[in-house]
């Protein structure tokens, strides 16, 4: 935690409605450069929705979100530029099934970043090495286990050199024995200083890696604080109840 680091992601008073249902209710928080923030909460609490709003996969009805100074909620902002700088890792991996692992990593590099094939492949191989899956470079995603696919998905988003990465329940679709390998990669990223916002149910990860925990319920932020504070002495009843049920 750097004391005077600049804000990377700022969320100010964000609300969102699905018809009359309020999915997000006046959400505000800031993520500094290099900070790791974990968002937890029961399902339907709006944690994925706020995460997806940050790179505009969901639109918001009120409030403001800025990423590295770019106003995401302003329709005049080139949203592609924002997404180039913010990686996203999905629960269901979403690798491109018609492309090999290597091509999954090089596609956006060449289409968006306009890198040469050689440069893109070099970067891709380096990242596959980092997530420990070099031997599968020529395979298609269908031939990979869930854990392997998710590691490739992380490498794919890293290939764009993002300033921050959003993780939307990255381990929820995995068999228990594969969760560890994905969390290890995420821990490595964290120690390297990547700005991360993680929606997860992995309390061990939240406790070990995060700088700050945000607890959400019914579209609101109920409690926010350091992991020590949150896991040992939560102030709100709802947070206590949640923790007692899952720990």
């Amino acid at each position: 935690m750097m004391a005077a680091s600049r804000p990377m992601i700022e969320v100010c008073g964000v609300s969102k409605f699905y018809g009359t249902f309020q999915a997000l209710d006046d959400i505000s928080f800031t993520v500094s450069d290099g900070e790791k923030v974990v968002i937890i909460g029961p399902s339907g609490s709006g944690k994925s929705t706020i995460l997806r709003s940050i790179n505009c996969l969901e639109t918001i009805d009120r409030g403001r979100i800025t990423v590295d100074g770019m106003d995401v909620s302003n329709p005049k902002t080139d949203i592609c530029k924002v997404r180039e700088e913010v990686g996203m890792v999905f629960q269901s991996f979403n690798l491109f099934p018609h492309k090999t692992v290597l091509e999954n990593l090089t596609l956006a590099q060449s289409v968006v970043r306009k890198r040469s094939k050689k440069d893109a492949e070099e970067i891709a191989m380096e990242l596959l090495h980092k997530v420990n899956i070099v031997e599968k470079a020529a395979s298609y995603p269908a031939k990979l286990s869930g854990g392997q696919q998710q590691r490739v998905a992380i490498a794919r988003s890293l290939a764009m050199n993002p300033k921050a990465i959003l993780f939307d329940e990255p381990t929820s679709a995995l068999d228990p024995e594969m969760i560890g390998e994905v969390l290890d990669v995420m821990k490595t990223l964290a120690t390297e200083g990547m700005t991360m916002v993680v929606v997860t149910h992995e309390m061990g990860f939240a406790r070990e890696v995060s700088d700050r925990v945000i607890f959400m319920d019914h579209g609101r932020i109920v409690e926010e604080g350091t992991p020590e504070h949150f896991f040992t002495a939560p102030t709100h009843e709802r947070a206590k109840l949640f923790l007692s049920q899952i720990l």
């Binding site: 592609c80 530029k81 999905f90 979403n94 491109f96 596609l107 956006a108 968006v112 988003s157």
Partner: peptide, 20 residues
């Protein structure tokens, strides 16, 4: 999710449509 993954990598809708 395929469109979302492509968009989140910074591709435009047209690029995502054509490439993915």
């Amino acid at each position: 999710g395929q469109m979302e993954a492509a968009l989140s990598l910074g591709m435009s809708r047209q690029q995502a449509m054509r490439q993915v």
